[in-house]
């Protein structure tokens, strides 16, 4: 696999080469869009197309000191925000595409492991829907997208200290919401 900077340089020179970037980031970005918003898969694909078109137009603005993934995730994040602004509505609930993702959040945040994965996914989904969007997104970036603080800082354009605080508060908010929701009702 070629480094991203090489893919970017080739895509600038030849549009067909851009397909390699699309193929590399299509699946993770689609999953990310679905995770942070409550849009349908079709809507997410439209949004994803806009993300890739915007990224293509702005390829020469890519800063090689950043990770390309952080840069394109930032574009995706901004696209979701723009879409919310247009719709004047934010995610009321979120998509967790697999019970595995719910399990991952639950284990990272000290939520007792459940026997029924589908029930646990439903529980995590409902708890995530309860917490503020800014917390929900950092939890998704940190625990599901597996981004470190530096990458989250570059994606959300916030200082690393702020990101660390957000993650800490997000965990607390999730735990509080999880206690209020009462896991036992789901199990």
């Amino acid at each position: 696999m070629q480094p991203d900077i090489v893919l970017v340089e080739r895509a600038i020179a030849d549009p067909d080469e851009y397909a390699k970037i699309v193929e590399k980031y299509e699946a993770p970005l689609l999953r990310y869009l679905l995770r942070i918003s409550n849009i349908s898969r079709e809507e997410a694909e439209d949004l994803l197309q806009n993300v890739f078109l915007k990224a293509y137009q702005n390829l020469r603005d890519f800063d090689p000191d950043l990770k390309f993934s952080s840069w394109i995730y930032r574009i995706a994040h901004n696209e979701v925000i723009s879409a919310w602004r247009k719709r004047s509505a934010r995610a009321a609930e979120i998509n967790l595409e697999s019970a595995e993702a719910a399990q991952l959040i639950a284990s990272t945040l000290d939520i007792p492991a459940a026997t029924d994965e589908k029930l646990l996914a439903g529980f995590v989904r409902s708890v995530l829907a309860e917490i503020p969007q800014k917390y929900r997104e950092v939890l998704i970036l940190k625990f599901l997208e597996d981004k470190d603080y530096s990458e989250i800082s570059d994606i959300l354009r916030k200082p690393m200290g702020t990101v660390a605080t957000l993650v800490h508060r997000a965990k607390s908010a999730f735990e509080t919401a999880a206690q209020e929701a009462d896991l036992h009702k789901f199990i």
């Binding site: 600038i12 549009p15 397909a19 699309v22 193929e23 299509e26 197309q49 137009q57 702005n58």
Partner: peptide
């Protein structure tokens, strides 16, 4: 080539989109 990348490349060509200078 996957479906989305084809679609995007077609869109780039259709709209004559180029990376900004």
């Amino acid at each position: 080539m996957q479906k989305l990348s084809k679609k995007i490349l077609a869109e780039i060509k259709k709209q004559k989109i180029a990376p900004r200078e």
